[in-house]
């Protein structure tokens, strides 16, 4: 056996081993434990007792409301965030004076690096009874309740994830070859038509990246629904916290955790396929 080869293999192993150890003990092992638990039974005092049953999975409809809320509000909030973010990204990439571009982009992203808990708390104050509803009451719109409704959760989601959605859209718009737009204008297209047929399709990958990121974070979120949904609008994440920390039904919680992961992976897979096909179709249409 060649010694240089041996040494090279040893170096590779040494480079990968630390990460491998972490992945094994903190990802693979916990996931195996969760999979095993999901077929178990709740111990009388809470926790896990060994068994082999599918009851936990058959019982999932008991948390159907949380699953339904997550599956409707997370995609809707992702869509709203993308719609809200696009004009900002467009403004920053195309319209604004380049000298201010970076500073304004950093200003969009900066809130994400400040305490998420405090920012959502501020929204409780803004949307709560002493906030916007009390100002609206002054101009004659009484008894408007926003906090602890799905609307509050949607507002909070757009607020919380806009800083993550803008940068990828910005990057895809900034890369856009301006000569394409000139060509489109030369061929007699109106600015609106150029936008719809050139700019928008070309920036779709950025929208897809941003939406994916936001969607992943929203699906697993539980702070946002807890703070702004106030126990009335709850996600799978809230159900999981309840199952593990309050009712201590670990096996059912394990089954729900795995279902959340499964739903996410399927949703991401379908979404990727849809988006890729759309952008391919559009690109073919342009060509």
């Amino acid at each position: 056996m060649n010694t240089t080869q041996q040494r090279s293999g040893l170096v590779t192993t040494a480079l990968l081993a630390p990460a491998g150890v972490f992945f094994f003990f903190l990802l693979i092992l916990p996931l195996i434990v969760i999979i095993v638990y999901s077929f178990g039974e709740r111990a009388p005092a809470g926790g896990y007792s060994p068994a082999f049953t599918f009851d936990n999975y058959l019982n999932l409809p008991a948390r159907g409301k949380a699953i339904l809320n997550t599956l409707t509000l997370a995609p809707l909030a992702t869509l709203l965030t993308a719609v809200a973010a696009y004009p900002i990204a467009y403004f920053l990439a195309v319209k604004v004076d380049p000298r201010w571009r970076l500073a304004l982009l950093v200003l969009v992203m900066a809130p994400f690096w400040t305490s998420q808990l405090l920012r959502y708390y501020a929204w409780i104050l803004i949307l709560g009874s002493k906030g916007i509803p009390s100002w609206l009451a002054l101009i004659g719109i009484p008894d408007l309740r926003i906090i602890n409704t799905p609307y509050a959760v949607l507002i909070g989601a757009v607020y919380g994830f806009l800083p993550l959605m803008v940068p990828p859209i910005y990057v895809s718009l900034e890369k856009l070859d301006k000569r394409l737009l000139e060509a489109s204008a030369d061929l007699g297209a109106t600015p609106w038509r150029s936008f719809m047929q050139v700019t928008l399709p070309m920036s779709l990958p950025g929208v897809a990246t941003g939406s994916m990121l936001v969607f992943i974070l929203l699906m697993g979120d539980y702070i946002l629904p807890q703070f702004l949904g106030g126990g009335k609008v709850f996600f799978i994440g809230n159900a999981l916290v309840d199952l593990f920390l309050q009712s201590r039904n670990w096996p059912f919680g394990a089954a729900l955790s795995l279902s959340l992961c499964a739903i996410m992976f399927v949703a991401i897979f379908l979404y990727m396929r849809f988006v890729l096909r759309q952008s391919n179709l559009r690109q073919e249409a342009v060509v």
Partner: peptide, 21 residues
């Protein structure tokens, strides 16, 4: 695969799985 799983699995599931393990 492990890198993508580590990024995609929601924090709440990572927290729970780590706790239970």
């Amino acid at each position: 695969g492990l890198i993508y799983i580590a990024i995609m699995v929601p924090s709440v599931v990572i927290g729970i799985a780590t706790l239970v393990a």
